[in-house]
């Protein structure tokens, strides 16, 4: 197994093929499907109630909290993956180093839990 550009070339070409397939279907849809636009049809769906105000992108700060926690633990994952792959080569030293890293993260995790960052309501 070597790092070769050809492997990624194949991925790129497959993406192109998938996009081409999708565009073909969409164009076919445009040709076959009817087009009778009207004002009522293009209103936003509000369960039958007329739309009164534009949608405001305001939502609970919980979503931001989840995003921040995600960044912390995803960076943890970024460190753990290469460690796992070369685990046998790193041996005891790598294990202890990773244990310290995970303990530090767990400390932050317990702190976040105690502060109520993991509570949704």
């Amino acid at each position: 197994m070597e790092i070769s550009g050809e492997n990624w070339l194949i991925v790129g070409l497959m993406t192109t093929a998938a996009i081409a397939m999708a565009m073909t279907l969409l164009i076919l849809n445009l040709i076959v499907g009817p087009s009778k636009p009207s004002k009522t049809k293009s209103d936003p769906y509000e369960s039958g109630v007329p739309d009164v105000s534009p949608v405001q992108a305001r939502f609970t700060p919980r979503f931001y909290m989840v995003a921040m926690l995600f960044v912390v633990f995803d960076i943890e994952a970024v460190f753990i993956f290469p460690w796992a792959v070369s685990f046998d080569a790193l041996g005891r030293y790598g294990f202890i180093a990773m244990l310290v890293f995970i303990l530090l993260l767990l400390e932050g995790y317990v702190y976040a839990w105690k502060k109520g960052a993991l509570e949704w309501v």
Binding site: L25, V32, G33, S35, K39, K41, D43, P44, P54
Partner: peptide, 12 residues
């Protein structure tokens, strides 16, 4: 059937 449907794009 889905190919034969109208492709709506909402005004907003």
């Amino acid at each position: 059937k889905l190919l034969g449907k109208e492709d709506l794009i909402p005004r907003a």
